[in-house]
């Protein structure tokens, strides 16, 4: 198995249905003989999952026989939720999470009313949803509730 194929199997520690490729965090895998250099980019500056991702990548590659693994960080361009792949978005929905819409671009408006997102309940598909909090159990998620089926669910934020 190529180093890229091995690295592509590693999953996000908080959302294990997503691989680091689905999440858009895995930026590059360079194989040079025995030596493998993996480049990842942090989703949020303070995301504690980064250390686990790094360890999991190293562990998976060591197990696959790559002894010399270097995991590097790329800060620029900054990660965007737009980098979550189509497959990643389908998996999020299948696991009861709502996928992000397009990330904002251009001048940053001050938003004094709750952000309106055109999202559907991942359980029943209703568009009647209510934002309960812009901040959730991890840095990348907001909290919603469906006002039809009452299902509470997490929405991966646009960033």
């Amino acid at each position: 198995m190529s180093a890229l194929a091995v690295a592509a199997t590693v999953t996000d520690p908080e959302m294990p249905m997503l691989t680091l490729v689905d999440l858009g965090v895995l930026r590059d895998v360079a194989e040079d003989g025995e030596h493998v250099t993996v480049t990842i980019t942090p989703t949020y500056s303070g995301c504690p999952a980064m250390a686990t991702m790094r360890d999991d990548l190293r562990h998976a590659l060591h197990t696959a026989g790559y002894a010399d693994v270097d995991v590097r960080v790329s800060l620029s361009p900054a990660w965007s939720s737009d980098w979550i792949t189509e497959r990643g978005r389908r998996k999020l929905k299948a696991h009861g999470l709502s996928a992000p819409g397009p990330a904002p671009t251009g001048p940053i408006p001050l938003t004094l009313v709750p952000t309106r997102r055109a999202i559907d309940c991942p359980r029943c598909g209703s568009a009647a949803v209510r934002l309960t909090s812009e901040f959730g159990p991890t840095a990348c998620k907001a909290l919603y509730q469906c006002t039809d089926c009452l299902e509470p669910f997490e929405h991966v934020k646009e960033i």
């Binding site: 949020y44 900054a78 001050l110 938003t111």
Partner: peptide, 27 residues
């Protein structure tokens, strides 16, 4: 400094949410 520029560009996205949160609660 490209490192400072990259840290800032990432932070902009995060602090946008902080400012909105505080402003909404303020109002």
């Amino acid at each position: 400094d490209p490192v400072l520029a990259a840290i800032a560009a990432k932070g902009v996205k995060e602090v946008t949410y902080h400012r909105d949160y505080a402003a909404r609660w303020f109002v």
